[in-house]
Design a protein around this nucleic acid. Structure first.
Lengths: 204, 204, 204, 204
DNA sequence: TTTTAAACGAGACGGTACGTCCTGTCTTGCT
DNA sequence: AGCAAGACAGGACGTACCGTCTCGTTTAAAA
């Protein structure tokens, strides 16, 4: 499904020179730009092709839909900068990570693309699958990381339910972003961390 | 904007001076049915008109888009059955309410309409506004109700942050429904209640 | 078909006040005006009703189509002023009459209505019938009049073919107006008279 | 404006780079057929597209209106078979030519198309222009031909007014066809020839 | 160096749905 | 009863994109 990077690396199977990397980049940039400038509803294959200076057929050759293009654009240029810090201080690492997550979701172009994809995934099971396989599963792993490290350091009870904790930490953030549209300030993410870690404190 | 309930008062035979209640009902039912049967992407104004036995112009006369129709259909026949119980037992009331909420979001036709609308709201600020004004705000009030009653009964600390607690309770549910696609079993919603109420218990 | 003049004259047969003469006039004037100002293609029942300040139903009650309205407007205010003169001088009478006919067809509002009706009659056999029955037959009689009088005065041979002569006199005028679009100056109509009357002159 | 004949050179299989000759032919035939079978009022772009097995957009890409299609259909398959004979006998040539013209106007499919176009041209100045430029001017040249040849042969006075004579010959025919709807028998066209040529006879 | 086959820009094609306009019918409540 | 008002089912309009299909042109590896 994802015809993203290096389908052709060492092109030598009949095709003399393989896929045009320049066309690929033009398409992804055009899609990105059009989404941010005009919104998902105004985003069309024809529009992407025109802005990218590319033939429609070139898009259809390598992507199956406009959301497929958008997924590539999203995975490519935006996904990997949400690595949580690793200072050895669980509380601090979580605070920083959640603030970054909130900032990504509410304040970045990539976040806008994510929101569009997440919205479209409600009508498109294939896109939902791809979004989970290529972004959310990795993001989830990053979200778990501080807790996993703390667990390995022995700072958390052996039966600590990391998955539940992650749902409690990031669930309210996504809820505000995707459902209520409320802002997600640091005070909010900090309060989430407090609530999850409070029961673990020595006294109360 | 919302031409929802009773624009017309006594109307019920087809065409009198003013809006036809019969046409209105046909359109809402057709939209509902088509969404559930064929999905949001396959839902078209022409399709609704054809199934409802109504002229396209009649739809355009009263609604501005297919999501406007869907909002009316949703508000009309689905919204108000998520009233939380009031047994006097906060813990129990919350458990029951969250289970119902999860059931609504994941297992009902109305929930499917909600997911479609929430998805589309990511691309459509007007729809987002309407969804919040006509459904989410009321739903939020219902979600707060058990906590508000408990607070009034003196079962919660005077400085208890109800809004934060609601975000912690329902956020993870919407997150699973809209983002990860995981199921939302009673064990999950119960665990959310436990986590929110635990710090309030005298000892543990 | 033609609900034209005086369907109701002394309204008193169950109807409290009969047909509204004011509505009828408004409709005819509106149709006339719209045709001249915006052309036949832009002329619609809705447009006539709006400009006349009349309900569509009122038009449909009394007329069967926009051409029916136009026929009434045409018959009413334009048809009867093409009476040929009767000076006793055939040559002069014909010259004057043809000049007036050309002026009517090319230079008057009523002529514009006639051209529109004649055009539409090419696609509408009913209209063609009505146009012939209510205008062309009378017009033809007027066109024949000078020749008929001359025949009665003994100025023409007893076997003179009046119908052929009329076709020769007015045919080229209609041809220029409806087909070639050329102007129809007095020199042209005079030449037609000359050609028809020349063979009758004693010598040449 | 007129995308008539051979915009494309070698095309004949459906879709090559450039216009599809097959689609063009299908559209013209469909328009022709529908006009003759159902009349001008029932002729729609959608109907033409459906019968031609062509997308509406393909029609709009190459033609500006249904009359534009009809003009192409008319110019293509109907215009050039009204060449007057050239026997050296003016009287005979004119008789034959006028009979053919009458037959064309009253009795052929192409004549039906012409009448529809001439009617529509009363409401549409662009169409009128095109009809004159692409058909009537050539037809007029053909109508003049017998007289021009006779003039060159010295059979007519040097000051003979050919244009007036043509108007006198064909005007009454078009008048009957477009205005009165009377038939145009050979006796009528012969009488027209007689009337125009009579003054030239050596005696009377 | 020449051949050669995939990828490319271009854009016409058959379609579907859009949102608008007008048709002719209807019902209402006023005059 | 006729009327102004206007909602209704229907159907065509002209437009925008869809996804498919040639065209003729690069272009870089293979011959």
């Amino acid at each position: 499904m994802a015809h993203s990077v290096d389908d052709t690396r060492t092109g030598h199977r009949g095709n003399r020179h393989g896929r045009s990397e320049q066309a690929r980049q033009s398409v992804l940039h055009a899609a990105d730009g059009l989404l941010v400038e005009r919104g998902f509803a105004q985003l069309t294959i024809e529009g992407i092709a025109a802005r990218a200076g590319v033939a429609k057929q070139t898009i259809y050759r390598w992507w199956s839909s406009k959301t497929d293009v958008l997924m590539d654009a999203f995975v490519e240029d935006a996904a990997e900068d949400l690595q949580p810090p690793d200072t050895g201080d669980l509380d601090q690492d979580l605070r920083v990570h959640l603030r970054r997550l909130a900032g990504f979701l509410t304040g970045s172009d990539a976040g806008a693309v994510f929101r569009a994809l997440a919205g479209q995934a409600q009508h498109d099971a294939d896109l939902a699958r791809r979004l989970r396989a290529e972004h959310l599963s990795h993001q989830r792993a990053r979200d778990r990381l501080p807790l996993r490290r703390a667990l390995e350091r022995g700072e958390l009870p052996g039966d600590f339910d990391i998955d539940l904790a992650v749902d409690q930490l990031v669930g309210p953030i996504y809820y505000r972003v995707l459902v209520t549209g409320q802002p997600v300030p640091a005070s909010f993410t900090d309060a989430l961390v407090d609530a999850v870690l409070a029961p673990l404190a020595p006294s109360h």
